[in-house]
Amino acid sequence: MSNTTQVGETASLACTINGAAFAVEVDPRRTLSDVIREDAGLTGTHLGCEHGVCGACTILVDGEPARSCLMLGVQANGHDITTIEGLANGDELHPIQQAMHESHGFQCAFCSPGFLMSTVALLAENPSPTRAEIREELSGNICRCTGYESIIKGVETAVELLAGNEPEQTGQTGQTGQTGQESAQ
């Protein structure tokens, strides 16, 4: 028999979030992003546009990146959800978080959960992406503060950290960037 949930009724949702079992009764119209933020209390996942463009609400569903604002909570039934809060190992930041810190990746950081989750997915599939590949893969996430360069450098630093290398220190003073080089647009 099909399950029908009338207006005003709730449906059961059972999934795992960041490795822990999570079960709740939800109004089926509520988005997964709202369920994560309000019911699971994990406010690290941010809502920037609620129509699937800005990428701030990106999470992992069974390891793959997804817009949590473009899923109903009930669609997560039986799935494995990872949010920004699931990255760090206790006090120790995830290497991608550490890399973003090293490279001054973000400013207001409202977009950062989406970028971090997209980067986790990108590096899981392609552990040593080119700069052009990084730009393309992260083009589903909008940042209004940085002009992206520090985030791209953060991903490159993360590649180094994940490979067990010490990252190159970012410039301390004076001239930065590589004057005279053309970027791959």
Binding site: C49, H51, V53, C54, I134, R135, E136, L138, S139, G140, N141, I142, C143, R144, G147, Y148, E149, I151, I152, T173, G174, Q175, T176, G177, Q178, T179, G180, Q181, S183, Q185
Partner: peptide, 20 residues
Amino acid sequence: TYMDYLVPTAMEIPEIDIVH
């Protein structure tokens, strides 16, 4: 919506060199 007001992404913004 963000489908019509186009905030540029990492694909649109080039590298920017800065001299201080």
